[in-house]
């Protein structure tokens, strides 16, 4: 089994910031095989299309997956109104996740805004070998810093307005510094302009970098070809791959930025 569909009960619901929620779903079959960087595809009741949300925590013993999402439109609004005990119609786990580098001494996890949640399973894997750089617009959006620390990651918090955190500005400033000190791998998720800047920096410095991309989806499993992402091979040949099946995680050099 690669993925499964079910109506999974919500074991825990938490509001963790303004319009941002954390849910824990009981789905033992999916939790048993889920990997960092994969996502779940959730149907808000009454809608026609599912919503892709990254996996933010995998607990194989408890048989649960955690997701963290921001209310963006009608679908995420409807999901945010569900309560503990309600069920979420979910296909999980989907997609091709991050490469886990057993050999890496120092890994940097770069998360921007609602791109921070998928960094948690990576922090769980790398523990003290990881530094998590998180970027947010301002204090009210800041999430998951203590979760990252509890998993052993060193955290560097950046806000665009400097309202909180060690860095006023973008994630690339501390990333540049860390790269000079030595980084074996970067994993990133966040808004496109951030990913572009992170990818460019890593490619220039020769640091392996993987990015998790977003695209509008229908099937979520690779059948409809809806979620196209333009990529290129090493010899420069361009072709569309699909975020739901080939991704959401791609190597930085693979993506046509």
């Amino acid at each position: 089994m690669k993925y499964t569909q079910g109506k999974y009960p919500i074991m825990e619901k938490q509001a963790i910031a303004e319009d941002t929620f954390s849910f824990t779903l009981l789905c033992p079959e999916a939790a048993a095989i889920a990997a960092p960087g994969q996502f779940v595809h959730i149907l808000p009741a009454g809608f026609g299309l599912r919503r892709p949300i990254s996996i933010a925590g995998i607990d194989r013993e408890a048989g649960t997956l955690r997701i963290v999402f921001a209310v963006r439109g009608k679908g995420t609004k409807a999901l945010s109104e569900l309560r503990q005990g309600d069920a979420m119609d979910t296909i999980a786990p989907l997609g091709h996740g991050f490469t886990l580098r057993e050999d890496a001494q120092h890994v940097v996890l770069v998360g921007g805004g609602i791109g921070v949640p998928p960094m948690l399973p990576l922090a769980a894997y790398y523990g003290e070998r990881s530094t998590a750089i998180s970027g947010f617009r301002s204090f009210p959006q800041v999430i998951l810093q203590s979760d990252l620390e509890a998993l052993g990651a060193r955290t560097i918090l950046c806000t665009e307005d400097g309202s909180v955190g060690a860095v006023k500005g973008f994630v690339t400033t501390p990333l540049e510094q860390l790269i000079q000190e030595g980084v074996d791998q970067v994993h990133a998720c966040g808004p496109m302009p951030m990913l572009r800047a992170v990818a460019q920096l890593c490619i220039q410095s020769g640091v392996p970098c993987e990015v998790s991309l977003e695209e509008r989806m229908a099937c979520g499993v690779g059948a409809c070809l809806g979620c196209a992402c333009k990529t290129k091979t090493a010899d420069g040949e361009e072709k569309f791959l699909h975020v739901c099946k080939n991704g959401p995680v791609f190597r930085a050099e693979e993506v046509c930025w």
Binding site: F47, G48, L49, R216, M217, L225, G226, C227, A228, K230
Partner: peptide, 23 residues
Amino acid sequence: RTGNPAPRIAETPSGMLNSVGLQ
């Protein structure tokens, strides 16, 4: 055929639009 650039999917009231373009 490579198909159309993304986004190729849009939600609509009780339906959806697609512009996959015969990839």
